[in-house]
Design a protein around this nucleic acid. Sequence first.
DNA 1: CGCATAGTTGACTACGCTCAACCCTGGTGG
DNA 2: CCACCAGGGTTGAGCGTAGTCAACTATGCG
Lengths: 200, 200
Amino acid sequence: MDLTDILRLPEPLRNNITTQNLAAGETLFTQEDEATNFYLVTLGRIKLVRYINEDRVSTFEIVRASQSLAEIALFEDIYTCTAIAEVDSEVIVYPKELLLSILRSYPDVAIDFMEMLVKKIQSLKFRLELRDIRIAHERVLHYLRHLVNFPEETTVVLDRPLKDIANDLGFTPETISRALIKLETDAAIARQENIIILQK
Amino acid sequence: MDLTDILRLPEPLRNNITTQNLAAGETLFTQEDEATNFYLVTLGRIKLVRYINEDRVSTFEIVRASQSLAEIALFEDIYTCTAIAEVDSEVIVYPKELLLSILRSYPDVAIDFMEMLVKKIQSLKFRLELRDIRIAHERVLHYLRHLVNFPEETTVVLDRPLKDIANDLGFTPETISRALIKLETDAAIARQENIIILQK
DNA sequence: CGCATAGTTGACTACGCTCAACCCTGGTGG
DNA sequence: CCACCAGGGTTGAGCGTAGTCAACTATGCG
């Protein structure tokens, strides 16, 4: 799902592309900002959230290196999410008109772009599916199993704090903690630090 | 968000396109079927679901007339969802190779297609956002307010059974029923049959 | 008329949330 | 080098909300 094809642009188009560095916690753009750019993450991790009420935030996506964000910019005038760097990060900035012209001119890039969008749809559907599993330990197990890309793999390294994962899954940190402990005593998983071993 | 551009295809390409009729409750394809076609709904309503456990199903999307489904077919070999007609429906069938070649050859169609995909991403994000609202009547109100496309609009006509809506929102029919009654007694909405009037 | 289904209501249960306390780690500054 | 602090993770007790199950009504359809 990497869009590195876009990086191999014809020379003249490259001039309009810049990079931007973000410190951990820094905001790239906020919902209701004017949507002018599309971004490709080259380093770090950026989360997309939306503020519902004053205190409640909803996290939609964790965008990692070689993944993109703000596709919405291409077709809408304002962003609908807020993008915040979870750790120090770097992004490539594509002005929307530039990207649109690229997508019109280079079918291969366009097809790649569509594939990336479809993958994002799949990912969101999975997150929605998770929410239909009410019981905490079942939801967590489903999530963990999904994190291993290959069925024969059994270890998952959690590179984010449990409390962030809890938030993604729609639980509190306490509930995640208890769910993991239950999975451990039920011998469904084993834990060492932030490494989880799935017992098949 | 209609893909009717695809309907205005150059003459030779049209020959490969067929339509298919579905009775209410009929299945168009099931998850793990070989993904060969992309579909455009012309009549009726089709829901995309995924079976989690033996009894639990998760509903992702309600696809209505002039909307499309099974974009996944373009980039994967098997469907990841099951598509079931909620009412009598009709779809246009596009073989995946045909659609891919169209998307390569006609940039305008490709851009429309991307826009449609981005809209689907937005819609899924909204559904995810809903799930982060725990209190039933608040989630229902948020949902209802989203159904009115224009802020000045105040009436919503529910064209699907409450129990289906309940399932979409991740609640039981009983909970939705009680939530609506609470919203009514709180004077946040008024109800007449399947029409909801939002009090601003 | 009889049946199936949607919607509603009630009583009870179960699960996650809340809030508080505690442990542990890593980082900071004296 | 150690004392202190902040934050993540864990544990416990009690609460609140949606789920469950059952019963009832209303509607539509055969």
